[in-house]
């Protein structure tokens, strides 16, 4: 059931993670974020980075998680392909695996500037699936 998708936004791009649990939806949203930049299949999960963040509610926590990833991508010049998220109340601890940007191999299309509150949703569907989505400014 776990998967990710992009949804249209006129100027930027919407990212959506769907998972059996909230954690998995957050992991899938991160996959969708990477897919804004490049095809994840091209990224080797060689290097591990630990990320922690906290926020007053689930939706702000999703934005914080994605923005923490964007910060790591920007400062380490890395792309990530695998994620492991743990949620405890309003605290998130995660590991992300990836590698340094290789322009020739990754052909990165665009750099995410920040995750927005536009179309921001974290909720559980009546079917039981968790959705975690927002628009990312690129």
């Amino acid at each position: 059931m776990n998967h990710w998708a992009h949804f249209p936004h006129e100027a930027d791009v919407g990212i959506r993670g769907v998972g059996d649990s909230k954690q998995e939806a957050f992991e899938q949203a991160a996959m969708a974020l990477t897919a804004v930049v490049t095809d994840q299949q091209r990224i080797a999960p060689l290097e591990e980075v630990t990320i922690t963040c906290s926020a007053p509610d689930d939706e702000l926590l999703l934005v914080d998680w994605l923005n923490a990833l964007i910060y790591e991508m920007a400062t380490r010049k890395m792309l990530f392909a695998r994620f492991e998220v743990h949620l405890s109340g309003r605290d998130l601890t995660a590991k992300a695996w990836g590698e340094k940007v290789d322009v020739a191999r990754h052909e990165p299309a665009v750099e995410p500037k920040g995750a927005c509150y536009t179309e921001l949703v974290v909720r559980q569907n009546p079917t039981g699936a968790w959705i975690a989505q927002c628009v990312v400014d690129v």
Binding site: H9, E10, A11
Partner: peptide
């Protein structure tokens, strides 16, 4: 101004 998403 964009008239189409990046996706499209």
């Amino acid at each position: 101004g964009r008239q189409m998403s990046r996706h499209q």
